[in-house]
Computed example of a mutant assay.
Amino acid sequence: MEILKVAFVTPGAYAVPSPRGGPVERVVEKVVPLLASSVEARIYGRTARGLPKRERWNGADCIRYPAADKSAYAERVLRSLAAYRPDIIQVENRPLLVRKIRRRMPGARIWLSLHSTTFISPPYLGPKMTRACLRMADRILVNSEYLASQVRARAPETADKIRVNHLGVETDRFGVLDPDAERHRRGWGDRRIVMYVGRLIPRKGVHHLLAAMPRLIRDVPNVLLVIVGSAFYGSSYRTPYVKRLHKMAKPFAKHVHFQPYVSHLEIPGWFAMAHAAAVPSDEREAFGLVNVEAMASGVPVVAARSGGIVEIVEDGVTGFLVEREHLTQGLADRLSQLLRDDPLRERMGRMGRERALSRFTWAHTAQRWLEEAGIVAQHRP
C-alpha cells in the first residue's frame, strides 16, 4: 500500500518542537509523531536557536525557515510544497495561506485545521475574505462543535467539509505527581489552592476571578489563587491589562500569587498543586486545553459556560459551569463549595481524570485524523 505524503504547515509563530510555543504548535508537536508510523509526515515551521534548519524528528521531517517576514516564510513554504507535492497539505490556523496555496497549486488536496475563531474574524479577515478562504479548503478540521458552528455561520456552504476532532492531553505527564509534595515544595502545604493557567488577556476573564476573591477569602480564609501565565507566550511583559490585574489583587496580596510565563513542560507540576481549576474565559473559547489538563490531573474545573468548554467539562460531574451573566458570583459560589467539600472535590477530580483518559487524549485525536484521511493505522519499519 502506498504511504500518503502529508505536509503540516504551521503559522511560523513558533518552532516545532518548542517548550515555549503556542497551542497551535503544541497540537502539531503532539499529534504528528502519532501519525508518523502511518504517513510520510513533514512539518513546516520557523527556525529557532538550537534547532537545525532540517532534521528528522519523532518520525517526521521538520523543515524550518526564518519567519520574521511572514510573506517570505510563506513563499519558502510554497516553493517547497510545489517540489514535494504532498497528497495532503494541512494548514494550521491560517485561512489566508489556504488561499495562497490554492492559487499556486490548484489541484492540491488542502485541509485547514482551525484552532479558534481569531483568524476567521475581524480585524484579521473580513466576512467576504473569510468565506472565500474557507470555500477553498477541501476539509476543515475544528476542535469543537462550537467552532464548527462558527465556521458554518460564516460559510454555510462548507458544512459538509467540516469535521470535529477534539484535542488531547498527555496522560502520562498530568496526574502522576504527588499533590502534597508539590504544595510543600512551594511552601503552600496549608493553603487551599485555586489554579488559573493561561494567557493574561481580557477575554480569558481573570478579572472576574479576582473580583470573586473577597467573597472566596471570607468563606475559605486559607485560599490562595495562583495565576500562571503572561500576556504573551514566552514573555513576562506587563501589558495595561496585566497591570490592572496586579492592582486588583493588591488589597489581598497574601491570597494571590502571580507566576509569570512558564514552559508547558512545567505545567503538570502546577496543576498537581491545585484543589480546583478556574477557567473564566468568554464565549470565544473554542476548546481550552487547560480544561482537559486540569481534569487529567484529577482537579475539578469551574469554568464559564461558553464556547467549546461545555463539550469538555461535564457540569456537576467533573466540575461546574457558571453562567456568564453571573460569572463573578458563580465563580465564588462554586469554588467555595469545592474548597470546603473534600468528598465532592475528590469525586469530581476522579471523574474528570476518567473522562480525560477515555475521551481526550492525543492518541484519540490522532486516530480520528487517520480515519478522516481513510488510513488504517499501521507501523512502518
Rank of each mutant, 00 (worst) to 15 (best):
R334D: 00
A304P: 01
S336H: 04
V299E: 13
G330A: 04
V299F: 14
E325I: 05
G330S: 08
S336L: 05
L344N: 04
I312A: 09
T318E: 10
V322M: 09
P300H: 13
E314K: 15
V299W: 08
V310T: 15
L327K: 02
A294Y: 04
T318N: 13
I312K: 09
D333I: 07
Q329P: 00
D333W: 06
V302W: 09
D341Q: 10
T328M: 10
S336F: 05
R334F: 02
G307T: 15
L338R: 06
V322P: 04
Q337E: 08
I312W: 06
A332K: 10
G308A: 08
F320V: 03
P300I: 12
Q337T: 13
V317S: 07
H326K: 10
V322S: 02
A332N: 11
Q329F: 05
L335G: 01
R324W: 07
E323C: 01
R345P: 06
V302Q: 05
L327S: 04
L335D: 05
E314P: 00
V310M: 08
L339C: 08
A294M: 11
R340D: 12
D341K: 01
G319S: 15
P343H: 15
V313T: 14
D342N: 12
H326Y: 05
M295L: 15
L331Q: 11
P300Y: 14
I312C: 01
